Computed example of a mutant assay.
Amino acid sequence: MEPADVSRRRYSLATLRSMIATWRERTRYRWELKRMAKDNPHLIDDIGLTRLQVEEEIAKLPFWQR
């Protein structure tokens, strides 16, 4: 394996890790929105979102997590 192949692989692994971290962060955010909408719906206005925006974001969770 040549050095260029190795650096390309590392970059790909770094990119993959970054993508997974982003997905996890978005999932946590959507779970928090879901919890907030259920427990403290008045806080939705405080963070500058509409109820429709929150519902659209929650809808992006996989169906088994909604």
Rank of each mutant, 00 (worst) to 15 (best):
R28G: 07
W64P: 03
D5W: 02
H42W: 12
D39V: 10
A14P: 06
P41F: 06
F63M: 10
L13I: 15
R9P: 00
I20C: 04
V54W: 00
Q65S: 12
K60S: 11
L61S: 00
E2P: 02
E25A: 13
S12H: 11
L49K: 04
R28T: 07
E2Q: 03
M1T: 00
L61V: 08
G48W: 09
T50R: 03
V54T: 03
M19E: 13
L43R: 14
A14Q: 12
W64S: 15
R8F: 05
I20N: 04
R28Q: 11
V6G: 01
R35A: 10
D5S: 07
W23I: 07
E32S: 09
L61M: 14
L52Y: 07
L13M: 09
H42D: 15
V6S: 04
E57Y: 03
E2I: 08
E55N: 12
D5Q: 10
H42T: 10
L52E: 15
D5F: 02
T22D: 10
R35K: 14
R66N: 04
L43W: 14
D45L: 11
D5K: 02
L49D: 00
M36N: 07
K60C: 08
I20S: 06
S18T: 02
Y29R: 09
K60P: 01
I44A: 01
A21P: 06
M1Y: 02
P62M: 07
E57W: 05
M19V: 06
T15Y: 05
A4E: 05
R8D: 11
R17V: 01
V54L: 04
S18F: 08
G48Y: 10
P3W: 02
S7V: 15
L33Q: 01
R24C: 09
I20R: 04
R35H: 08
A4Y: 01
E2Y: 04
D45V: 07
T15A: 11
R24L: 07
R28N: 12
I44C: 02
M19D: 12
A4L: 03
R9K: 15
R24D: 04
A37D: 06
K60Q: 15
